[in-house]
Nucleic acid binder design. Sequence first.
DNA 1: TCATATAGTTCAAGCAATGAACTAAAGCTT
DNA 2: AAGCTTTAGTTCATTGCTTGAACTATATGA
Lengths: 408, 408
Amino acid sequence: MVMPAPAVSGTGGAAPGTVGDVRRSNLALVLGSIAEFPPGTCPSRAQVAAATGLTKASVSSLVLDLLDAGLIREVGLNPQGRGRPGVGLELNPSRAVMGMEINVDYISAAVVDLTGKVLIREVKERDNRNSAHAPVLAALAALAVRVRSSAGERGVEVLGGGLAVPGLVDPARARVLTAPNLGWVDVDLDLDALLPEAPLGVALFNEANAAALAELRDRPDGASDFLFVSGEVGVGGGIVIGSELFTGPEGHAGEVGHIVVDPDGGHCSCGGTGCLETVAGQDAIFTAAGLVPDTGSRSASMSALLQALKAAEPGPVTAVERAGRSLGIALASAARVVDIQSVVLGGHFALLEPWLRAPLLESLGKYAPGKYAPEQVTVSAVGEAGALLGSAGSVIRSLMEAPHRLHA
Amino acid sequence: MVMPAPAVSGTGGAAPGTVGDVRRSNLALVLGSIAEFPPGTCPSRAQVAAATGLTKASVSSLVLDLLDAGLIREVGLNPQGRGRPGVGLELNPSRAVMGMEINVDYISAAVVDLTGKVLIREVKERDNRNSAHAPVLAALAALAVRVRSSAGERGVEVLGGGLAVPGLVDPARARVLTAPNLGWVDVDLDLDALLPEAPLGVALFNEANAAALAELRDRPDGASDFLFVSGEVGVGGGIVIGSELFTGPEGHAGEVGHIVVDPDGGHCSCGGTGCLETVAGQDAIFTAAGLVPDTGSRSASMSALLQALKAAEPGPVTAVERAGRSLGIALASAARVVDIQSVVLGGHFALLEPWLRAPLLESLGKYAPGKYAPEQVTVSAVGEAGALLGSAGSVIRSLMEAPHRLHA
DNA sequence: TCATATAGTTCAAGCAATGAACTAAAGCTT
DNA sequence: AAGCTTTAGTTCATTGCTTGAACTATATGA
């Protein structure tokens, strides 16, 4: 028997529902409906009413609130054929959100409008390895100020932002628990200092999770359930289920890099044994391939590896094949635990896919037959900027889901 | 930055919210509040108002609906000290739900009132191994009729039911996808025939998932996030996060039995290789222990094993230790994927816990250090009847969350 | 007996969605 | 060009919900 999902549901025992909640819910419904029309369509109020199931009267009133909040704007006319033309509605192009990222080799910031279009993007190289967090954040704040003001010059207001960090985070407390490659442990961040006065503040994300969310937005196949595997220095992951990031009770789900792939394997930086990361992390692949990992320039090491692979050098090829098989084992186990049937390869796994794919599929077939169809093992659609854009996208999405937070 | 959870939220783009949704939400809030008062307390309307944050006026009106629906009843007076005594409210003890289970060796049914108290429970031994499903269901239907009418004689009305089955299910389509030990593949069930005319119908559950839900209800530590591992002929599991069963996109999450624990291991009935089940399933342990698995009476085999363990016979001891270590590997991987930090051992794992515990903890420490504290590895609080009671409990819970389904 | 305190109900008010009636603005017909 | 048809959007009375204040009911304590 199927339980019908109520259109409006309580939080599960906490606060009483009021009629105001209905309005908030419908505000999000209308805004989401406008956003989901094909780009450039600019639906009329009547079309929104038809799409949402609300009456024209309700939509008119809700649209008024959204206009007041500056989230949408009216744009030209929209002839329907016979009758009176509708007034087009679209997301306000002068409202935006800032994505930010701190990574090992760089910091970056981007301004993304509500439709997801990247208006500005700046990357600043910076060696953050084992750097204290204060100067890194100061540099990022400076970058944010610059980017924000150049958005302001174009008439674009930044409403809020998201910051992606390569490590375990506690988003609720704005705290980085561990970021091994930055050398950070239990670092509290003053996020709001990055975007002073921004009405939505700044949210904190794990890098792989943010990248998974970016992937969700850009997927050509429109997949809403997948496991994103991010191959960086470490191996991270993000689980998307029902178009939502699945974070687990403490917010650290999807740590694919530390699934056990070889009980007799080597030690891992996490303290564990035989983790995927010890076989498929960048440094592990470099050393197994017989390359000296150039910690100063990882991208140089990576291009050396790719060249060696193209030259079919046996050492690198078998190293990558081994990584592929191990990745298959990890994904097989993950599939069983969270019941996911689709994988997106990101980071260096995307670059290595041509050599990785065959052993990976073979391994998946051996350890989890029938779980993943081969066409469900795909390469990331977003590039390096995944974490950057994903953190912005996530902030946009949470705004779309609760537009009343903007004064309305 | 923390996103405040709205008290009433939309479904995510589907139906518009109406004022009626607010009432439905608050109806559930009031009912839940009454249920969560300590047993025997019988709160007054005023106490419910205080607990929920609703006004006395609203609570009065909502309580009236719940009384009409027969979900609660007024009971005696409730002196508060000084002023006018309140009228006690409690869950209606004459409304109940039926839990049902089909397993390898038996079928069973139980009537459970809305507080979770078991009123009637009947187990009927029956060898369902490789039996066609029709006669099994006919026998269960007969059992259900008997139990239901004997509840009726006590004035108890059965509102709906849940059926737990040892296999992969598709609850939405009332379909058993595979139940290896029953020999069922893609079996469609006519669930409503089990409880004709019951207003809530009959829901379908996976056995381990249902047991996990029973565990949730009975946990002495009140844990709301844990992984329940059910050791039966197969090894199943149920993941509880935030007091909700986590089912994954297709409803089959928590298949802990098929996590890879030994890439070089043997074949599994699932088609995979080196699954936990091939080391820690009942038959695997029996054979590794040097005991002949008596497929006719698994409980006999189990008591033989327990005796051998008590006698410290080396074969059985090492077999169980090996199972414990493998279980540790699987749980380490699962912890990384879903970020869970607490494990409940059920089924034969509960019986074997004294011998299993040390190698399990050692293995967890080796493969996922810091993830599980030793006191977070506990033994199931519900016994064999977990799946039976869990399926009933889940139906009760879904009723509590949507009481408007009952005519109100 | 009366004051006080608490429980529960009644009722006017506010807010949200609704549906019907109405106004606005186009294309099409003759 | 005038009028008909069609569609967009607004206005307004109605309904349903929660709320808060006023009110009634019923206990304890002085």
